[in-house]
C-alpha cells in the first residue's frame, strides 16, 4: 500500500531530476547550514526547471555536488559560458566550476514556518553573489598585507 516516507539524498536527487525533467517544479525540505542565513535547515524550497534560461550570477540553484554526488543548493557567484562557480552563502570554499548539465534547477521559493521568505532571492542576490565572490580575494589581500607588515618588521 502507498505510504509517506522521508527521502534519502540519493532518492531526493533522483526524484528531483525526474520531476524537473517533466517540466514541473519540485518542493522539498532543505537540510544543512551552508546557505545560512538566507536558507535554514528545515526551510521548504521550491525548485523550478531552468526551461532554457541560463543560470545567472546571484541565482540560488540545485546541482549535483562534484564530491558527494548528492543534490546541493548553493549560489552562483560567477558565470562563464556553460560553467558556473558556485558557493554556499555560509561556506568559505567555493564548490568549483559546475557544468550546466549538472545543474538541476533554480530555487524560486523559500518557505519558513509556513511563510514565504523573499530575502536572498530578490535583487539583493546580485550583491550577495558579488560579496561572496570577492570575499576570498579580500581574505588573500588581508593575509598578504599582514605578511608584508611582518616582513617589514623583521627587515
Amino acid at each position: 500500500m502507498p505510504q509517506t516516507f522521508s527521502l534519502s539524498g540519493t532518492k531526493l536527487l533522483a526524484l528531483a531530476r525526474a520531476v524537473l525533467e517533466r517540466g514541473a517544479s519540485f518542493r522539498f525540505r532543505a537540510v544543512g547550514t551552508s546557505m545560512v542565513p538566507f536558507i535554514r535547515s528545515g526551510d521548504v524550497l521550491t525548485l523550478s526547471p531552468l526551461r532554457g534560461r541560463q543560470p545567472r550570477v546571484g541565482d540560488v540553484i540545485a546541482f549535483v555536488h562534484p564530491v558527494t554526488g548528492r543534490m546541493a543548493v548553493h549560489r552562483v557567484v560567477c558565470a562563464r559560458q556553460a560553467a558556473y562557480l558556485l558557493r554556499g552563502d555560509a561556506v568559505l570554499e567555493p564548490d568549483g566550476w559546475i557544468r550546466l548539465e549538472d545543474i538541476l534547477g533554480r530555487v524560486t521559493r523559500i518557505e519558513r514556518d509556513g511563510r514565504r521568505v523573499r530575502l536572498g532571492l530578490g535583487v539583493e542576490r546580485f550583491g550577495i553573489a558579488w560579496l561572496r565572490r570577492h570575499e576570498a580575494l579580500w581574505e588573500l589581500a588581508r593575509r598578504a598585507g599582514r605578511a608584508a607588515r611582518q616582513w617589514k618588521w623583521v627587515a
Binding site: 505510504q3 509517506t4 516516507f5 526524484l15 517533466r22 517540466g23 514541473a24 519540485f26 518542493r27 525540505r29
Partner: peptide, 14 residues
C-alpha cells in the same frame, strides 16, 4: 504533480 509542482513534503508514496 499537482498545479505543476511535485511535492516531496506531503504526497510522495512508495
Amino acid at each position: 504533480i499537482a498545479a505543476g509542482i511535485g511535492d516531496a513534503e506531503d504526497d510522495i508514496f512508495t
